[in-house]
């Protein structure tokens, strides 16, 4: 077990390195000179442009720039944003709280809704309940987040006045964004839970349990739920990265400072160090979460062992 953990952790190093190299190369392939972006629509002379380029360190060869970054990163220094010279680490760190809150809350919404809808529709298969639950789930997949978010604001903030529209801190500011972000994931999850529950519902061991005279609720709780949980955990492991970095629209609509928005803004401004920092952070979270997911299989399914 410990050995497995060590091996997995060691494997994250090449992955992170590859990610950072990929990001670096990709960003340099993208047309657009950061110095020009810096000046935007302001008048500027070529000499000033060159000077700023120099200050941003863009005059050095590509490889030198990359290894410079790498060297810094190994020492725990991700450099400073080339636009506002804020240390990247600080920039990312100041948004982790907000992002993590949102991702976790969305996770709870998605997990709860997905599990609920999936279970109900599987246990009441081929009834109107099943149809209704799946319809709700499909509604989720077919609604763009910005639209759902706008509707939520209109109904719950403006008309009913239940929740504040924007901001950060306090659970009541979290409800609407978490729901907007989580609802979409819940749809995929509900379908997965439904099919994995259906799969076990007629497995011999469940039938046996039933024939032993166990009440249906107990059968479900003991044997079916665990299987459903495996589905939830797997999907959420895969989607947590999306909940973090893909939350840009939710963050924009609800005016929350977050890592997703930071990353997109940095990409659009070609702020190399900032993009690197944000991507590395998201990648690290993704890797760690999936490690946790894999470990939790052992708990959920005793047949799985780590060697």
């Amino acid at each position: 077990m410990l050995q497995y953990l060590a091996k997995r952790l060691l494997l994250t190093i090449p992955t992170l390195l590859a990610v950072s190299l990929l990001v670096f190369l990709m960003l340099h392939l993208v047309p657009g000179d950061p110095a020009i972006i810096f000046f935007g629509d302001q008048p500027v002379t070529p000499e000033r442009l060159e000077q700023v380029r120099r200050q941003m360190g863009l005059h050095r060869p590509l490889l030198v720039q990359y290894f410079d970054f790498l060297g810094g990163a190994l020492r725990g220094d991700l450099g400073r944003s080339i636009h506002n010279s804020t240390p990247v680490l600080e920039e990312v760190r100041s948004r982790i709280g907000s992002s993590a809150q949102l991702a976790l809350a969305a996770f709870v919404v998605a997990g709860g809704l997905g599990l609920g809808l999936g279970l109900v529709s599987a246990l009441r298969r081929s009834t109107w309940v099943d149809a209704a639950a799946m319809l709700v789930a499909l509604g989720g997949v077919s609604m763009p987040i910005f639209w759902l978010a706008a509707m939520l604001i209109f109904v719950f903030s403006i008309k009913l006045g239940w929740f504040p529209v924007t901001g950060f801190g306090g659970w009541n500011r979290l409800v609407l964004p978490a729901f907007a972000l989580g609802f979409v994931s819940s749809a995929t999850l509900a379908r997965l839970v439904r099919s994995s529950v259906l799969e076990v519902l007629w497995q011999p061991y469940v039938t046996t349990a039933r024939s032993k005279g166990l009440r249906e609720t107990l059968v479900v709780r003991r044997h079916v739920l665990k299987n459903a949980f495996i589905a939830v955990v797997t999907v959420m492991g895969l989607q947590l990265g999306t909940l973090l970095s893909g939350a840009v629209i939710t963050e924009t609509v609800f005016a929350r400072p977050g890592v997703g928005k930071l990353m997109v803004d940095a990409i659009l401004a070609k702020d190399f160090p900032l993009v690197q920092g944000a991507v590395l952070f998201v990648a690290l979270v993704y890797i760690v979460v999936n490690l946790v997911v894999d470990l939790s299989y052992a708990y959920l399914d005793p047949r799985i062992r780590f060697e």
Binding site: A18, L22, M263
Partner: peptide, 22 residues
């Protein structure tokens, strides 16, 4: 599978932005 992992780790939105930009 390492490649697949890498692709999963890589934020989709970044890929989209980069492809569109190029």
């Amino acid at each position: 599978m390492r490649l697949v992992d890498l692709m999963l780790t890589f934020p989709g939105i970044l890929l989209a932005l980069v492809i569109i930009a190029i």
